[in-house]
Design a protein around this nucleic acid. Structure first.
Length: 589
RNA sequence: CGGGGAGUGGCUCAGCCUGGUAGAGCACCUGGUUCGGGACCAGGGGGUCGGAGGUUCAAAUCCUCUCUCCCCGACCA
């Protein structure tokens, strides 16, 4: 039996000064964790117990669809060069040298190691599909660790990798993970949402993120209360109300209008007496890319056109061009547009026809909201002048139409038209159709039914173990502490004798705890010789969902059962306690 | 990497501006009184003031450098 008096549960009356978010404050105060360095934490007794319960749930569910491995965290440089990630990962990869001076790194994920095994061992379609997973530490040299366990440099991750003979197989493996993740997060008692996610520059096709809403979250998710639409900001869209285009003026060809000193969208729209919706917003950006061979930096103009009243979503842009961009400098603007900022437009410049080809030409990306619009007003590339009668595809030729618009709260849901909301959220899981990126590069090949060599198709699937804990704490706390779902709480029930010097009370409490333990509950006995107030405060703080007060009423055969989440208090006869908890725990506090 | 803030006993912080015996509350130890929501009284232990250098008769305090931590931003397959 776990006796509080013998355990190390260093609770703190005050939160450490450097803790900001609720989960950080409470996990430290409750004695779950202690910080070792920025983004590096030790798990103490309670923290580790909760952690192990989460891991056990993840393992149980994953074992139904896959096989657990345990892979090294220390990897040789060659492996990461084979996948191309040695260069790609930059400073986020922890790098070190061994005594011989050979470069090594600490794994951020294990695609390379898993693919290496697949490459060496898998020969035939008969061996597929495979789902391999592990639960192991991961390392990322984050530029800015923050928010306690939310963004750390060492963390535990369940990472799984699937290998299939073809895309149809991948779809099956992906679906298995999707369903498994739902089961895992359900069992962990989290209120989560599944959102469509951006697959980024990694060439994947489909991707979902599992998110938990919390003010501490770093991601923004767009969702609809009217239907089940939910998406990451990078992927979210909304329904636009139709806009009336302006009538063509004059002969319908681009028409120069004098707009002296009118530089902003607002100014020009007001000056010309039109809505910003009929204006083109021209954003001049620069993409800079290092040539891996020559080491030289190549830059290329990226010009983005948005509807006048719309904002650019940079994540969408990054996804579209697959390189980092920055605003153009004054000289660069002059060089391309031959005009000062404020009067920029797409007309009269030769744009690349294709993003990949024509790399010597600047790129013109036009937001989808402008596709099909006519007679817009944009800059004339001439100081104090704008152009009327601009129609995309007629007066200028976009390199591509892309969805680049940032959705804002209150816009209409693309599915049902309800108002969309935007909330901060924490990502607790991410599933990803990888394709053949790794298997191709690293030379994994199997023979198919026809004896033809094919490249296996991969999926990768991650769950952040500490983020489950963090999200659970964020989700359920008040000024006194937090309460965890019974499935992941370090203990389900704390039995609190009001006065341990009273032999009757103590004995009754011990008996009750033993009974509950025998019935399979995870119980801690708070047998400390402390005043009741101290024990109550601690019990409220440390995340245990139920408390049983053993007080004077034991002489009448009853104890008090307290539900931490609501503070609801109920007298229960001792003989009925076990039965009571069977029901209560089934109802998942 | 840019901007901001902070390092003083285990924790939260005061003292620094204006240099002169290192403080408070909580926690801890001993004794006593208490005992259903972080008790009270008495006594006690514990700090190279992040580090290095400098100015000064004298530095937690002033100056220079440096390390660490936190926050905002950039970044985050």
């Amino acid at each position: 039996m776990h006796r509080w008096s013998e355990l190390f549960i260093p609770t703190l009356r005050e939160a450490p000064a450097d803790a900001e978010v609720a989960s950080h404050k409470f996990l430290v105060r409750a004695g779950y964790i202690r910080q070792l360095a920025a983004g590096i934490y030790s798990y103490l007794f309670l923290g580790n117990r909760s952690f192990n319960k989460i891991v056990a749930i993840v393992r149980q569910e994953m074992d139904k669809i896959g096989q657990e491995f345990f892979l090294p965290a220390l990897h040789p440089r060659e492996l990461w060069e084979a996948s191309g990630r040695w260069a790609l990962m930059g400073d986020n990869l922890f790098r070190l040298k061994d005594r011989k001076g050979a470069d090594m790194c600490l794994g951020m994920t294990e695609e390379e190691v898993m693919t290496e095994i697949a490459r060496k061992e898998l020969r035939s379609y008969k061996q597929l599909p495979q789902i391999w997973y592990q639960i192991a530490p991961k390392f990322r040299d984050e530029p800015r660790p923050k928010s306690g366990l939310l963004r750390v440099r060492q963390f535990m991750m369940k990472d799984a990798y699937s290998f299939d003979i073809d895309v149809a197989g991948l779809d099956v493996s992906y679906k298995k993970h999707y369903d498994t993740y739902c089961r895992i997060f359900d069992r962990c008692g989290l209120k989560y949402m599944v959102v469509e996610a951006d697959s980024g520059a990694m060439g994947g096709k489909e991707s979902h993120e599992f998110m938990v809403r919390t003010p501490a979250g770093e991601d923004q998710i767009v969702s609809c209360d009217g239907c089940n639409y939910a998406a990451n900001m990078e992927k979210a869209t909304s329904k636009l109300w139709p806009v009336d285009d302006l009538a063509a003026e004059g002969d319908g060809k681009p028409l120069e209008v004098h707009t002296p000193g009118q530089k902003t969208i607002e100014d020009v729209a007001k000056y010309l007496g039109v809505s910003p919706k009929n204006k083109i917003k021209t954003l001049a950006l620069m993409a800079e890319e290092k040539d891996e061979k020559t080491g030289k930096t190549k830059s290329r103009g990226i010009v983005v056109l948005m509807r006048g009243d719309h904002q650019l979503n940079e994540a969408k842009l990054n996804g579209a061009v697959a390189v980092a961009t920055r605003p153009m400098e004054e000289g660069e603007i002059k060089a391309l547009f031959k005009s000062p900022a404020g009067y920029l437009g797409p007309v009269g410049i030769e744009w690349a026809r294709d993003l990949k080809k024509d790399t010597h030409l600047p790129v013109l990306l036009v937001d989808k909201a402008l596709e099909g619009r006519t007679n817009l007003i944009g800059g004339a590339n001439k100081e104090d002048y704008h152009l009327k009668n601009l129609t995309p595809g007629v007066n200028f030729h976009p390199t591509a139409y892309v969805d680049l618009r940032a959705v804002t709260a209150g816009e209409a849901c693309p599915n049902c038209g309800n108002a969309l909301r935007i909330d901060p959220a924490v990502e607790i899981g991410h599933i990803f159709k990888l394709g053949d990126r790794y298997t191709q590069k690293m030379g994994a090949r199997v023979l198919d039914k026809n004896g033809k060599e094919v490249t296996p198709i991969m999926g990768c699937y991650g769950i952040g173990i500490e983020r489950i804990l963090t999200a659970a704490v964020e989700q359920s706390n008040d000024e006194n502490g937090f309460w965890l779902p019974p499935s992941i709480a370090p203990f389900e029930i704390v039995v609190t004798p009001i006065n341990v010097k009273d032999e009757t009370l103590l004995r009754a409490a011990i008996d009750l705890a033993a009974q509950l333990e025998a019935a399979g509950f995870d119980v801690i006995l708070d047998d400390r010789d402390e005043r009741p107030g101290v024990k109550f405060k601690d019990a409220d703080l440390v995340g245990i969902p139920f408390r049983i007060n053993v007080g004077r009423k034991v002489t009448e055969g009853t104890v008090e059962v307290v539900l931490r989440s609501t503070r609801e208090l109920r007298d229960v006869t001792i003989s009925a306690v076990v039965e009571h908890f069977r029901g209560a725990l089934r109802a998942q506090a």
